[in-house]
Design a protein around this nucleic acid. Structure first.
Lengths: 216, 216
DNA sequence: GATGCGTCAAGAGCAGTGCTCTCATTTCCG
DNA sequence: CGGAAATGAGAGCACTGCTCTTGACGCATC
């Protein structure tokens, strides 16, 4: 069965709407994203857009999933480029940072303050975990806990990071947090007049984090 | 000269507007904050509010400054409660986290994604630095660099953290970032299904950070 | 091949927003 | 006391998300 003219047109229109929405998101941020102006730009009347997208919130949800997937893909590609563990780790960190700097509005959408009145629906959850999985994978494969008992309290959900030694689980979560904290602070201007050489600082943070999760 | 009826009324009206705005911010978030509904609630017509607040952005700016001051005050109070350095450090961390959990919308306003189209004006800068100053103060007073050369690249603005040993400056910035990263992740739901015991986890992070900046 | 079902775009309309302008009233100060 | 400044009210503009109705079109079935 060929998709049929109608199905094809629908797919194309949907794509056009999402693309235009992402464009506007990138240009003016999530709060300024307007269904009406997306419609205008795509060349239809606002009410017609509702045939393709149930609401403004649903449009945002789709953009969120796409963003999670985009950064996740970049992180996975960085990991797959190989090299020694520490280099892999740094490559993934850099990939996240680079993606964030290329797509600040999308980064803000997924890691910034939640859009008010908007609760992330379930379909975003798997996409949201991809970067974390990549980091956990590196730690699980190459992290050296030093053969010690875990000095950390037992605070994580069980089976959260399979393959990661218990003594490295908490450090891994801390490192994951540090990654997004650092990228967020840089992106949202908190390092203005604080950190001069952002590249070098970021690499230093990545390296410190690598040490904390037992790489090398 | 007594302030006069007019000046007093003006101060009261301004206060009422700001209070109502903060209430709405707390209840529905920054994007849902509407000058018109603030006006309604305060009991005047929307155009009259513009006699007190130049624009919605200016209203947000005032709320931002008040929020920075509030969390800064709490952090200073925690430091001033005394105790050994490590305890002081943890108290400040907890103060920030507690304030954030009590005022999530305000926290999101100052540390979340910037409201689109909104650039933080200069008057927010001093207020924004208060918590960082508190942390830097503790490190400067009690941080022990171990007498070593700084293994960190020279990436920070000169004279940024007076009194802090050079070897501890980068760790201090990293710790400051980690604090807000951790609080933000908890607040914005990234630890959902990840970290079970948030209190214990947070204390563990605070402790690790304390060690990294040479406390004890 | 004609027909009727379901999808689709368009338009009008509702309630809300930020912001500006005008106008009347009130308070203050010389 | 009278003019100047400050204040509040109202109308109005251009915009938003979203709903409902109306008319046209593609397409599978009879």
């Amino acid at each position: 069965m060929p998709p049929g003219v109608r199905a094809r047109a629908r797919a194309e229109t949907t794509r056009a709407i999402l693309d235009e929405a992402r464009r506007q998101l990138a240009e003016q941020g999530a709060a300024a994203l307007s269904l009406r102006s997306v419609a205008r730009e795509v060349g239809m009347v606002s009410s017609a857009v509702y045939r393709y997208v149930a609401s403004r919130d649903e449009l945002l949800t789709r953009l969120i999933v796409e963003a999670y997937d985009a950064v996740g893909e970049r992180a996975e590609a960085a990991r797959d480029a190989g090299g020694p563990p520490r280099e892999q780790w740094r490559a993934v960190w850099r990939a996240v940072r680079d993606w964030a700097r290329e797509h600040p509005a999308e980064y803000a959408l997924i890691y910034g303050s939640p859009v008010p009145g908007y609760a992330a629906p379930a379909e975003t959850i798997p996409a949201a975990g991809r970067v974390g999985l990549v980091l956990a994978g590196i730690v699980g494969e190459h992290g050296d806990a030093g053969g010690q008992e875990s000095p950390w309290p037992d605070v994580l959900r069980a089976d959260l990071l399979p393959g990661v030694p218990p003594a490295l689980a908490v450090p891994a979560i801390m490192a994951w947090t540090q990654l997004y904290g650092t990228v967020g602070f840089e992106l949202f201007g908190q390092y203005e007049n604080v950190v001069d050489d952002r590249d070098a600082y970021f690499d230093a943070v990545a390296d410190a984090a690598a040490t904390s999760v037992g790489l090398d």
